[in-house]
């Protein structure tokens, strides 16, 4: 119970931060919706931990609900890391294009 309260407090803190960032226009509308849904889902999962425990048990897994959440969290981290890597690669390609344009333009002067 105490752990759930702490987890909900953390979720609450990040949600407050999110709204502050939105008010200061530090994040776009799309980003706000994504992170709002993310923290909201996390909050619901924390509240319904017992339900997740039962669900996991009924699915035949021996782990508890909190463990499953952790596994899902790690999988999500890998996914986000991969997305960032792809975005970085696209930025690298854009930098190359700029460097190329400069090299050719300088020669043509």
């Amino acid at each position: 119970m105490l752990q759930q309260i702490i987890a909900l407090a953390i979720v609450g803190y990040f949600l407050t931060r999110l709204f502050k960032q939105k008010n200061k226009k530090q994040i776009s509308g799309g980003e706000f919706v994504f992170w709002f849904l993310f923290w909201l889902l996390l909050g619901v999962m924390v509240i319904g931990l017992k339900l997740i425990d039962r669900l996991v048990f009924n699915l035949g897994f021996s782990a508890s609900g909190i463990n499953v959440l952790l596994y899902l969290g790690v999988a999500a981290l890998f996914y986000f890391f991969f997305k960032i890597r792809l975005r970085q690669e696209k930025i690298e390609r854009d930098i190359t294009e700029v460097v190329r344009e400069l090299a050719i333009a300088k020669k043509e002067k």
Partner: peptide, 8 residues
């Protein structure tokens, strides 16, 4: 000779 200003 073309020169890249950053190593690519």
């Amino acid at each position: 000779v073309l020169r890249h200003i950053i190593n690519r």
